[in-house]
Write a protein that binds this DNA or RNA. Sequence first.
DNA 1: CATACTAGACCAACTAGTCGGTTTAGTCAA
DNA 2: TTGACTAAACCGACTAGTTGGTCTAGTATG
Lengths: 198, 198
Amino acid sequence: MKWMEVTSTQEKILQAAKTLMLSKGYPATTVDEICAKAKVSKGSFYHAFSSKEELGVSLLEWYHQGGTEKIFGGSFNEVKDPKKKMLEFLDHVDRSSKELWHDGCLLGNLGMELAETSPKIRLEVSSHFKKLTHRLEAIFEPAAQSKAANGGYSAKELAEQFLVMLEGSIVLARVNKDWGVVKRGFQNFRAHLQSLSQ
Amino acid sequence: MKWMEVTSTQEKILQAAKTLMLSKGYPATTVDEICAKAKVSKGSFYHAFSSKEELGVSLLEWYHQGGTEKIFGGSFNEVKDPKKKMLEFLDHVDRSSKELWHDGCLLGNLGMELAETSPKIRLEVSSHFKKLTHRLEAIFEPAAQSKAANGGYSAKELAEQFLVMLEGSIVLARVNKDWGVVKRGFQNFRAHLQSLSQ
DNA sequence: CATACTAGACCAACTAGTCGGTTTAGTCAA
DNA sequence: TTGACTAAACCGACTAGTTGGTCTAGTATG
């Protein structure tokens, strides 16, 4: 899929697929359903995407792109002091979290559902997580310590811990229908980083 | 399902369903597939369970029962000192983690996939998580602090953090095919509790 | 005989994907 | 402006195979 030229049909399909797959997962979401929601015919669907799996891959790319723009696009970028910047980043993501992940995380959803059955999609998700880790590392640097330090973590480890907290709290929040889990997750992680960067 | 009398047919079906649903998820696992793997006819299946969804509910109950036995059944129970007991519990679960969750967690899997489409199963999962939280609370008590304490957490919050760490690291481990994520999760959580209980 | 269980053919509904044909938008010559 | 030509986008009935679930005909055991 050439990202310089996402047609409106593709966009409609992607948006519909995103909503449906966040709600019901990949296998339970049918192509017909996506077409109905996107108000697009079956023919148009298979003109825009060669298969359901290819839609999945494109969807992950599109979702990741949109997500990172929101996550890494806040005003915290202007802050010069790295430690302040880090904490403002956390506040920014915390504030955006409900909008971003209230219905779940597509990377986590599709990754889990298709990890064993679609290597293509598993690798796609894995690569997106790695890209995220990389961008988070740069931000969490102020809280990182050389690995010799007792109780200290590298920036990479902190990025991993952040993603673990995010995906884990999304699971519990959905299952228990209690968004507070995510809020507390952010709060705790903030305290964690703050104590490390003192 | 009366748990005093799980027939061997039910057991075979539950075991097959567990393996298949951990690997491919609930909707992608077909009844025919389960029958084939369990070496049971379709007639027997629908004699043992009234529907696929009822199998799902029973499976969660069975899985939870077996899981808690392994999690809370280690020798750490003999330890008298609460703090020591807590740390030995963590070591015990850490050691058992690969056996327990290498292919994922059924509670997390089914909970996520069916949260929006099957209220019955979502509630079932939610209730199992609550039971787990309760039992964890008792164990993490030594690291708990009255909520007034700065940077302190209640036992309930610690139990939640543990489940968040567990579910989150299982997601990343499966997607990245790197079990180290879970190992590091346990390690970090251990350090977290230890620093809180000093 | 009666009850519990098993077998697998069968069904209506649904699935991803196809295919012949139509519409739309743009290009170019006259 | 007009009309001929083209190519991409679009349409939805259709296909071949699969789905969860049913049903009748059995078998084993008391």
